[in-house]
Design a protein around this nucleic acid. Structure first.
Length: 501
RNA sequence: GGCGGCGUAGCCAAGCGGUAAGGCAGAGGUCUGCAAAACCUCCACUCACCGGUUCAAAUCCGGUCGCCGCCUCCA
């Protein structure tokens, strides 16, 4: 298994400190507001990694923290006139709703800063004892000049950084790049007793303290968003290695940003979306597929179009799954399969190919390519209705279903009951287009009457009317089904227009 | 200014030394009252541009142009 490691700047073999075990830490959220789609991407990416490592037989201990003591929380709580802990709790619950919806497994440990003070204070003390930190007027700072490799993760030197000179200058600091491990209490802020007086932890120390507390001095994998490389993870390295003298983490994994209109999503730019915003309009599997459609390391561009594409793709998966389910249920007693199964080579190689892709830095995009073949095969099998083909088709379909289940242990895309999923999908897709289900049902009913009278002109007229609204009809033996297709309807409109394109 | 990353078909996106996965859109076909869905076939002699290394480069090196990010809170 090879992973891209930010520190070495290359894909490296994943080596474990202890055979068969993985100690994995992801920087969690600061719960001062609802989580955004960037958080979603990050934790989906790490969820896939967590699930894949476990599926690979490794005993993984996954730790993800909550930074529930922080300036942003305190400020927001003060604005709303509530206690910081209450605000944090509220947002943690909200975070869980989002994570659960996205199919993200709960980590094994989820420490919080507010309940980790003894470990944090102990770590600060160790750093002072080792001479790499110093107390100053109730604050405690880390002396970056005492850590020779400071800047190794962010690939910069202290000289580089001082050239930028965008650092807060303070009389309390020995060096402008020194950062706070402990901050003296200010009025109206939550504070904890410490050897340096009442105060609270600085931003970076909590992750060092909590990760080492839960996992020991050395981690196998430490992950987070790319924006955390510097200064957060850089400082974590300085703190942890400054305290232990040992390598803090053997692998550093960072996920790329979610961009909107090819620019970083941020509140100031007004291109900010919460997970809840998106889940109101799309099923969670859609967001998850959207995330997995680009390698976790690369930037991904968020747009309605991309989501619509993903939504139609997931609907295709579930439509196939629904038919496959019916097929497997109905085909009770058919003869025994004979000779090679359809898609036999593909089925036989499925796991190996899946693992090969995932072993290569968790390449979900390649896996998705493989799934395209799998679903095509499923649909092919469904077309094999001749009696003599049935036994082999059924046997292959059973195998295929098992392969999909195997892949979905990691992907978590098609675990919902297909019929339920498709109902929800249609409802949301219609809502996105501003269409009411009643209106669609009425039109479909009108057309049904016209068709029963073989009034094809009227039937076609109704169909075109629906198509113009974005509703695509599918006549089948059981009646007429419909779907809302933004992507396809858009294309139809384009063709219908005068010399479109 | 310092550092890092990216530029692959109309769009999205893998590949990262051995001769361009996959999806969407598009064209043709099977099916269908006609369609749609589904399936089949086709769809980049070429990977921003210019040099170089190599038997061999989208992949390595140098340069140019363009975009993005970090250096301040941020997943």
């Amino acid at each position: 298994m090879r992973v891209y490691d930010t520190l070495s700047g290359e894909k490296r073999l994943l080596e474990t400190l202890e055979p068969g075990k993985i100690r994995m830490y992801a920087c969690g959220v600061t719960p001062y507001d609802n989580s955004h789609i960037g958080h979603g991407r990050c934790y989906v990416a790490f969820d896939v990694i967590y699930r894949y490592l476990r599926q690979s037989g490794l005993q993984v201990t996954y730790v993800r923290n909550f930074t529930d003591v922080d300036d942003k929380i305190i400020n927001r709580a003060n604005e709303r006139g509530i206690a910081a802990v209450d605000l944090a709790c509220e947002n943690i619950q909200s975070f869980y709703r989002d994570m659960d919806a996205l199919g993200i497994a709960r980590p094994d440990h989820e420490p919080r800063v507010s309940t980790s003070m003894p470990q944090i204070i102990a770590l600060v003390q160790t750093l002072i004892e080792r001479g790499v930190a110093y107390a100053s007027e109730g604050d405690v700072y880390y002396a970056v000049s005492k850590f020779p490799t400071y800047g190794k993760l962010g690939k910069r030197t202290l000289d580089d950084m001082q050239a930028g000179a965008r650092v807060e200058v303070s009389d309390k600091k020995q060096h402008p790049m020194d950062f706070a491990l402990w901050k003296a209490a200010k009025p109206g802020e939550p504070a904890w007793e410490s050897p340096w007086g009442k105060g609270r932890p600085g931003w970076h120390i909590e992750c060092s303290a909590m990760s080492m507390n839960a996992l020991g001095e050395c981690l196998d994998i430490h992950c987070g968003g790319q924006d955390l490389i510097f200064p957060h993870h850089e400082n974590e390295i300085a703190q942890s290695e400054g305290a232990t003298g040992r390598t803090f983490s053997n692998h550093w994994l960072h996920n790329g940003f979610v961009n909107v209109d090819n620019e970083k999503m941020s509140k100031s730019l007004g291109n900010f979306f919460t997970i809840k915003d998106v889940l109101q309009r799309y099923e969670p599997q859609v967001l998850r597929l959207f995330y997995l459609s680009t390698h976790y390391h690369n930037p991904i561009n968020f747009s309605d179009f991309a989501l619509d594409e993903a939504a139609e793709r997931v609907a295709y998966f579930y439509e196939t799954l629904r038919k496959l389910e019916i097929f497997l249920d109905q085909a009770g007693s058919v003869g025994a399969p004979f000779g090679p199964l359809p898609g036999e080579a593909f089925l036989n190689e499925f796991e190996a190919r899946f693992r090969e892709a995932m072993d290569d830095d968790f390449n979900t995009v390649r896996v998705l390519g493989q799934l395209a073949e799998a679903f095509k095969l499923a649909n092919e099998l469904l077309m094999m209705r001749k009696a003599k083909q049935l036994p082999n088709a059924l046997a292959a379909a059973r195998q295929l279903r098992d392969k999909l289940t195997y892949a979905d242990e990691v992907l978590q895309l098609f675990g919902a009951p297909p019929a339920d999923y498709l109902e929800r999908h249609k409802t949301k897709a219609a809502a996105r287009r501003g269409l009411s289900l009643d209106w669609i049902a009425e039109k479909v009913g009108d057309r049904l009457i016209a068709r029963s009278e073989k009034n094809w002109a009227e039937a076609d007229r109704v169909r075109d009317e629906l198509l113009a609204a974005g509703v695509v009809l599918m006549d089948g033996p059981q009646g007429t089904d419909w779907m809302v297709s933004d992507v396809r309807a858009g294309a139809v409109e384009g063709v219908a227009g005068p010399d479109a394109g």
